[in-house]
Amino acid sequence: MNIFRLIGDMSHLLAIIILLIKMWKTRSVAGISGKSQILFALVFTTRYLDLFTSFVSIYNTCMKVFFITASYFTLFLMYHKFKATYDSNHDTFRIEFLVVPVGGLAFLVNHEFAPLEILWTFSIYLESVAILPQLFMVSKTGEAETITSHYLFALGSYRALYLLNWIYRYYFEGFFDLIAVVAGVVQTILYCDFFYLYITKVLKGKKISLPA
């Protein structure tokens, strides 16, 4: 464990908590893409299958349990409890156009042609594009609530911090995972224009309003 990965995990944890707070406090899922939340639940499910087979640390296990539980609870809030506030008209990204190619790529490009490894690779590739429905929805609605912007900033920062974690681990531990790094770079790049808007607007007290 290093400081970059720890802050990254905390940023990821914060993002999920911000989202749950937003939904619980406003009793609304307006502006949130259910499609992205489905992809995140799929990412955690396929990545944490080793939850019961390999024990790394208490921290690792607790975080995995929390991430999986929180992602399914988020789906429950979106598609059941606060379903009336779900904006399906603006959440129209065809996620099959993400899942199918990512699934194919995971079969072709992986470290080891074994079920758990291919599922892990699938979850890494899928996570790098899982935010697309959400960013697409923000561009379609033309604006995002401030708390949703904080959610996206924390979520985008987590993988950017993981990039620093991989640089650190390369130099100090000789650890390097090309698949995770490439997917992490793609994932972080997807947030770049949002990061720009967040830093130039939200931090100055304005709302994010994209040219619709």
Binding site: D9, S54, S57, N60, H111, N165, G174, F175, F176, A180
Partner: peptide
């Protein structure tokens, strides 16, 4: 490169 078989990252 040393591909860590034991996935210790989240």
């Amino acid at each position: 490169f040393d591909f860590l078989k034991e996935k210790d990252e989240l």
